[in-house]
Design a protein around this nucleic acid. Structure first.
Lengths: 228, 228
DNA sequence: CAACTTAACGTCATTATGACGCAAAGTAAA
DNA sequence: TTTACTTTGCGTCATAATGACGTTAAGTTG
């Protein structure tokens, strides 16, 4: 039985679209690249796959060691194969995306090294390589995903108000939703359950806090919202 | 600027799940493998990515040269990374799936070389490598896809009856649907348009022939069917 | 022309959705 | 202590979509 080590294989990189929700905006985490090519440009965090690693292991190596993040939602996004996507040679990128709540990390705006930064998805710099393309693919995936899987909750605190989650949905979907119909849907369908507590320290009426209903059968979650 | 050719990179294979609808059943195309490992076992058609190829080019190389198929629906499925998925060494598989109408090719049952064969998806042999896993991933993807994209039509003749397409949906989704409600949905929403012709040569009433409505805005296509 | 089968069309009750109105709770200003 | 203002929470109504199912029409076979 022969092996394949002697053939010329493309290099294999794993790139991560880390998405967080902060200050009412969906944000992407980018790194400022030091080396050529694309020195001083912003890029997705990434690493080359080590020979014995799985993709997930590479992801966790990047997230844990470089960014101090763990226990997050992670899913394979797509594999990118344009032959000229890296000027150094043939590099295939397997992209994953992660959803995190920035409040759980020291990565809130301002508390990070200046080569790591959150960018609101509508104010992105022109990133290196084909990373713009990868980011847009992730955003489209997320738009589709939150309509049939309760993944949006990964971006919020465990306890949240209905206004919180509605703003998150509006931000991701890029359209406004009727407050009262949104509430009705999430409550009637029991996607969320009241905790009994309310959020205080507010100027106006104190809203109730809710939590995702962990007992919800996954195939029951479905929102019928048209994209703009 | 350095290149990466000198590193030890995993081999990169492209594997194809070719799906066809025939004899009222969804079928997968498998090849009988001649060489070790897994000699005499059935596998997905596949090939190693050549250094300058895109994934799609590899797919077309496999489909065109080995199977004589072209002009088909092709979409990236998922990338498989289990380190032990190939006993010859580390091989990453980027899987694509293709939807074809077998009637358009000489690959109808019985007209093929005996090392190429269609298998109904519920009567699969135990395939080599992790190909069972890849096939099941493709079937789940197809189930989800036909509910929000009009991809099912790729598996049928251009002109079809409502019974044809309903049987296709029932077969892919694995559940029965009400004949009258199915018709109502597809006609009222103008997913399909009448051609004016009817299918003759039948024992009973001759059904009208329809065609997919090419002018349908894609975001309008949506079926609200729960999976079993 | 009677029997049989599939296609085509229709009805009705229930549920989901879109578009709103209005009262309650809380803070801040008068 | 009112009054103004804002956000939350609850409710209504019309319309659209869906599930369940009955009836008639078209065609073949005996």
């Amino acid at each position: 039985m022969k092996t394949f080590d002697q053939y010329q294989n493309p290099a294999l990189a794993v790139d991560l679209v880390v998405l967080g929700y902060q200050l009412g905006q969906l944000q992407v985490l980018l790194l400022n690249r030091k080396e050529a090519p694309f020195a001083n440009r912003w890029t997705l965090p990434g690493a080359f796959l080590q020979f014995t690693e799985t993709f997930q292991q590479t992801c966790h190596r990047i997230l844990d060691s470089k960014l101090g993040m763990r226990n997050l939602y992670l899913e394979q996004l797509y594999s990118f194969d344009q032959p000229d996507r890296d000027p150094r040679g043939r590099v295939i990128a397997v992209a994953y995306y992660a959803l995190i709540n920035p409040a759980n990390y020291k990565t809130a705006a301002g508390t990070m090294a200046n080569d790591v930064k959150w960018f609101p998805v509508h104010e992105l710099p022109d990133p290196a390589f084909d990373h713009q393309n990868i980011i847009q693919t992730a955003l489209k995936r997320l738009q589709a995903k939150i309509l049939y899987q309760p993944t949006g909750f990964e971006l919020l605190d465990q306890d949240f108000t209905i206004a919180d989650i509605q703003e998150l949905y509006e931000c991701i979907l890029g359209r406004e939703l009727d407050r009262r119909n949104f509430r009705r849907k999430f409550l009637d369908a029991r996607y969320i359950l009241p905790t009994g507590a309310k959020r205080g320290n507010l100027k106006n009426r104190h809203p109730e806090l809710y939590r995702f209903n962990k007992d919800l059968p996954l195939q029951k979650f479905h929102l019928n919202i048209e994209l703009p």
